[in-house]
Design a protein around this nucleic acid. Structure first.
Lengths: 131, 131
DNA sequence: CCGTATCCTACCAGATACTG
DNA sequence: CAGTATCTGGTAGGATACGG
């Protein structure tokens, strides 16, 4: 899906090109958990447990893993208070806050158009994933 | 990830709730191929082969599969011209065009901020997926 | 040209148990 | 509280071959 480009700086960013870093970033950002985490962090910093409670169905493993990935691409900042018991907060970076606008727009759009999207589609109401 | 709600109509759409259809729709829409296909269909109808050429790296299987899923949730309309050789076009529905705005906003944002996102991250430049 | 049908594999992600 | 570590199965998705 994503291959190393010859020279990143001289390449025009383009999600349609499989060798472009933009494609890799899209796959990271568009993940379901990524979008939900960024959405959840909209107005305040949240702790591990708070995120677990807000995002129903996410596992501890996927939460941690996704947070680390979001940190890596500069969207989330991790604040470890170095206390006992541990207190860690996650915060959106400026870049993250900027992206959040786009993600929230999508999430809210989906919620607003939910009934229309599943209209005449009894099959969707039958689909269920485990967990 | 997604479970059947007791009664869809009386439920407030909420992507954070795992039993809400909005969660299922998000997972469909946020898929990497889904977003690229909707993005690609922005200003004109496209044929199977054209989509294959525009979206580098997508397989025939995933293209067809994703198009069928987008059809199912009323985002894409399939036009079979019933000719020999076959001529099939894909078009965004009104709902699809509405969503396209949100998706394009995300894609363009990623492209514009690509260099900043991978800054200080030589590791990302080393990551590569097969294909 | 526009697909379907199989087969097969990697890895995504859940379950569970353990730690500072 | 906020994580790691390990095991495992399911499935996303690639490769290939065939068909109208």
């Amino acid at each position: 899906m994503y291959e190393l480009p010859q020279d990143i700086t001289q390449e025009k960013p383009d999600v349609f090109r499989k060798k472009c870093p933009a494609r890799y970033l899209l796959s990271r950002v568009s993940g379901k958990w990524s979008m939900l985490i960024v959405d959840a962090l909209h107005n305040k910093n949240l702790r591990n447990g708070e995120l677990m409670r807000i995002i129903e169905g996410i596992s501890q493993k996927m939460l941690t893993q996704t947070l680390r990935e979001l940190e890596e691409i500069q969207l989330v900042k991790r604040h470890d208070m170095q206390t006992v018991p541990p207190h860690v907060e996650y915060e959106l970076t400026e870049l993250g806050k900027s992206l959040r606008e786009k993600i929230c727009a999508m999430d809210r759009w989906i919620e607003e158009n939910m009934l229309e999207l599943i209209a005449n589609n009894p099959s969707i109401q039958l689909k269920r994933n485990k967990t």
